[in-house]
């Protein structure tokens, strides 16, 4: 077996164990104590476990995996270690779409797809498109321009959300606010199942592009002369990332920095190769958000913290540290 093969096997093995362990922690953590032995016999415990605890853990898995894998893919695509759905404004665009849908009272579904999902995807796609259009004026994406345009797209989206909140009725405004803070709270398994139907195929499609993304992460011209159709690959990855982030954000709110923290941790342990980093981030992101959510539930004695606050408090400083390190290589 080659070195890459060994590292891939180690990453998949170890991170799967970590994910399983984090799921156990997530299932056992909460304001109510559940004895696992009584889940099947006691109806109260059963309801708590299957209607609340398990869906919440699965929600953390789906959203954490989505944000982390898109972070890793966007970093490779833009050759920028600071790229992530949050810093590029993709989450912000998704949040704007979802806020608009909530304010308009769109609880309906079209062809089984909730309109909040669709609006969030549209917002995320718009953000990806505009960030790219601004950053890519010429042959190369300038790293500094990319992040600046991401910041500005976030600011614009934030201003639009504020405007919507101001104009809408107080009840919708409160719903938008609660949703923006970000939460994995969910009742029953059905919503998680619906998300999985969209997310799982998109994850698989992203993983299938890991060889191309690995070549793109090295250098764009190199990738092109090694047989990668760069423009086509970019279009597909953009669309997949907007879709995955749109769905994740419409379900859990804007949870920041997961796409930054997890890929960098996986990199530090298992190396740069995107064929390891993408599946590693998928598993690691799921485990990370489940644990962050468990921490959010028990950090305060009387109530729970928003999970977005936990990831933000961890990810913000990491972003600054990465920026500091980048400056030394003067690549921004």
């Amino acid at each position: 077996m080659t070195d890459t093969g060994r590292r891939l096997a180690a990453a998949l093995g170890i991170l799967t164990m970590v994910l399983l362990a984090s799921m156990v922690v997530g299932l056992l953590t909460g304001s109510q104590h559940i004895e696992l032995g009584r889940v099947l016999s006691d109806s109260m415990s059963r309801t708590l476990f299957f209607r609340l605890r398990l869906p919440r853990v699965l929600m953390g898995l789906a959203i954490g995996a989505s944000l982390a894998v898109t972070g890793a893919a966007l970093q490779a695509l833009f050759r920028n270690p600071l790229a992530d759905p949050y810093t590029l404004g993709v989450s912000g665009g998704g949040a704007l779409g979802a806020s608009a849908a909530i304010a308009l009272g769109w609880s309906a579904r079209v062809l089984g797809v909730p309109l909040v999902f669709a609006a969030s995807f549209a917002g995320a796609m718009l953000a990806v498109g505009s960030v790219r259009a601004i950053a890519r004026r010429g042959a190369v994406v300038l790293p500094g321009a990319l992040l600046l345009s991401g910041v500005v797209v976030n600011l614009i989206a934030g201003a639009c959300v504020l405007t919507i909140q101001y104009l809408t009725d107080p009840e919708s405004a409160l719903r938008i606010l609660r949703w923006l803070i970000g939460s994995l709270d969910v009742v029953g398994l059905a919503p998680v199942g619906r998300m999985a139907m969209v997310l799982a195929p998109a994850w698989v499609a992203l993983l299938a592009l890991s060889r191309q993304l690995n070549l793109l992460a090295i250098d764009e011209d190199t990738a092109a002369t090694l047989g990668v159709d760069v423009r086509r690959c970019e279009r597909i990855v953009h669309t997949l990332c907007a879709l995955v982030v749109g769905v994740a954000v419409s379900a859990g709110g804007a949870i920041g920095f997961v796409g930054l923290i997890v890929p960098h941790a996986v990199r530090a342990i298992f190396g740069e190769d995107l064929r390891i980093l993408l599946p590693g981030s998928l598993l690691g992101g799921a485990a990370f958000l489940i644990l962050a959510d468990a921490l959010a539930r028990v950090a305060l004695p009387a109530s729970e913290l928003p999970v977005g606050a936990v990831t933000g408090l961890m990810g913000g400083p990491l972003f600054l540290w990465l920026l500091h390190r980048q400056q030394r290589f003067s690549m921004i």
């Binding site: 970093q75 050759r79 790293p143 070549l215 992460a217 090295i218 250098d219 011209d221 002369t225 090694l226």
Partner: peptide
């Protein structure tokens, strides 16, 4: 095959990984 004037990577790939990318086609 094409050898550009200069290659700068944003990520700390190992030299061997760069060379192995030549096997991708």
């Amino acid at each position: 095959a094409y050898v550009p004037q200069a290659t700068a990577t944003a990520f700390p790939f190992q030299a061997l990984e760069i060379v192995l990318s030549g096997r991708a086609p």
